[in-house]
């Protein structure tokens, strides 16, 4: 009876990751990821494709062995998490096609049964299936075959399956990929509800900054296998966008220079005294979106192995 009580994480930390590293062969995918999440917090792991988001989340889910580092998920190491630990997690992965022949209610009812033995005095498990179907907006499709659902409906079913055991912590990997704006908004409401009323910790991955800003209490920006920023959208804007862009025209050519640290004024003063032909001077602090987009752009061009991306800037800096 008291088995679950003994497993409760000490304090309010649901997730604690320290210096997580992952290497496939000779390729380092994660090069030292550290973060923590409190109970009831919604965290967004934001980053361009290939940044290591899915690898990170799969290690936390216990589906992938890490190369190094310390990880604690609900007080246990996911590499050795037992079934009682698993019962407190919800997992929503990308690209499910399973159980196509099943009816929606049958499938949820079947999966719900596995969680019943893990109910505690504080957490009644699982959700009432019909109520859950209503919550995710599939009431009219309760008797539909899973394979007949549209992409968005299927995704909502995936979320319902992920939370049917009333998890304390939910992992959502790219939850709204392929959603129309309406479905996306409904999904956002659902996540807010989970965090606010159920006190569920949520870790979601996305490459959409807008979504991260709307959903998350805190955003972690993952790039090249490490976390380069961690904070609320406001904090991120200040932390990540210390850089400013100075643009000007000289001798008929347009130049751009990124001031990566501090005040751009010094650079401008130098520029103006050094080159009297400067016209069309512009100084612009980058927005969070600009910064993120340049990150995404760089990741994409890296993947395409294009090396001539910074030519223009380098010309000025040299």
């Amino acid at each position: 009876m008291s088995a679950q009580d003994a497993l409760s994480p000490s304090g309010d930390v649901a997730l604690d990751v320290r210096d997580l590293r992952m290497r496939y062969g000779t390729k380092d995918v994660l090069t030292g990821v550290s973060f923590a999440a409190l109970r009831g917090e919604v965290l967004a792991l934001l980053g361009p494709n290939g940044a290591g988001k899915t690898t990170t989340i799969e290690i936390l889910e216990g589906f992938r062995m890490r190369s190094a580092g310390e990880v604690s998920v609900l007080g246990e190491d996911p590499a050795h998490g037992g079934e009682a630990w698993r019962a407190r997690l919800g997992v929503v992965l990308q690209s499910w096609r399973d159980h196509g022949r099943w009816r929606v209610r049958d499938l949820l009812g079947y999966l719900a049964r596995f969680y019943r033995p893990y109910a505690t005095a504080e957490v009644s498990r699982p959700w009432d299936v019909d109520e859950l179907i209503k919550v995710v907006g599939l009431a009219e499709l309760a008797n539909a075959k899973v394979m007949t659902l549209s992409g968005g409906q299927r995704r909502r079913l995936d979320v319902a399956i992920g939370i049917v055991g009333r998890p304390e912590l939910v992992f959502l990997d790219e939850p709204t990929a392929g959603f129309d704006p309406h479905a996306r908004r409904e999904f956002h409401d659902l996540v807010h509800r989970l965090a606010d009323f159920e006190n569920t910790t949520v870790l979601l991955t996305t490459h959409d900054l807008d979504e991260a800003e709307k959903l998350a209490d805190r955003i972690l920006v993952l790039d090249e296998g490490t976390i380069i920023a961690n904070g609320s959208a406001d904090q991120l804007a200040r932390e990540l966008t210390t850089q400013a862009e100075v643009r000007w025209t000289s001798e008929g050519r347009r130049h751009v220079h990124a001031v990566t640290e501090g005040d751009p004024t010094g650079f401008v003063r130098q520029l103006l005294t050094g080159d009297l032909g400067v016209t069309e001077l512009e100084v612009k602090r980058a927005s969070l979106e600009d910064t993120y987009m340049s990150l995404v752009h760089r990741a994409e061009t890296d993947q395409a192995q294009q090396t001539d991306r910074t030519e223009q800037t380098e010309e000025v800096q040299s």
């Binding site: 009876m1 088995a3 497993l7 037992g82 079934e83 009682a84 049958d106 079947y110 033995p117 893990y118």
Partner: peptide, 29 residues
């Protein structure tokens, strides 16, 4: 420390599995 509820949970899984077998047979036919 997880062992106290484990037999009970396993038994629940076996029963759920029987339901699964029955449902899948129905779908299959």
């Amino acid at each position: 420390m997880t062992t106290t509820t484990q037999p009970e949970a396993r038994w629940a899984a076996v029963r759920a599995g029987l339901t699964r077998g029955w449902l899948e047979t129905k779908y299959s036919i």
